[in-house]
Amino acid sequence: MSAFVFATAQYESGDWDSAPSLAGNVIDTIARYTSLEVAPQGAMVSLSSNDALRYPLLFLTGHLPVRFTAQEGRVLKRYVERGGLLFIDDHNHDIDGAFHKTATEEISRLIGPLQPLPNTHALYSSFFKFEDGPPTTSHELNGWGDNLVHEQLLAVTRNDRIGVLYSNKDYSSEWNFHPDNKRFMGVDPTRFAVNIVVYALTR
């Protein structure tokens, strides 16, 4: 069995590397809570390369407008059709923001329309139980962005499986803390990442 590798998607437009500490924290969380074999280093993979297909779970974030190139669009479409799960997080947590508007447009154009994901979805119970759906982040009401608590995630599903998971919760900020700070947190904010990884690996 090969180890799970947490991969971050690179794309030509925007700032794909806006949450540089996130991967390490997610990897630490998976190793901490599960017995899954996980690679200690994450991977960064270009969406314009077929190598993206080697990572059936991809994380994509940014603040800036997103316009996928034709090649990125082809790879992304193929990626979802073949069973990959693309997790996109809006680093602006702003439904009027440039990232949200352009990213959702691009996903709708290439994959299909994003729909609200019910808060009873298996994603919220695949490891930890999140009775109220996606966990709220401390950044949603920080005065930046739209200053809303986003009650649901959005998704494009294929054959009853999530192909694209879209969040305005700003997990990119929430999970992008310095690794040393985790010990001071009352509740580990990255626990939801375990659910996403377990869901992708088992459903």
Binding site: M1, E37, P56, G83, A200, L201, R203
Partner: peptide, 16 residues
Amino acid sequence: ASTGWESRFILDALES
């Protein structure tokens, strides 16, 4: 099977 991409895609292939 252990948890991993192989088992996940076997499930997908057979169930579909």
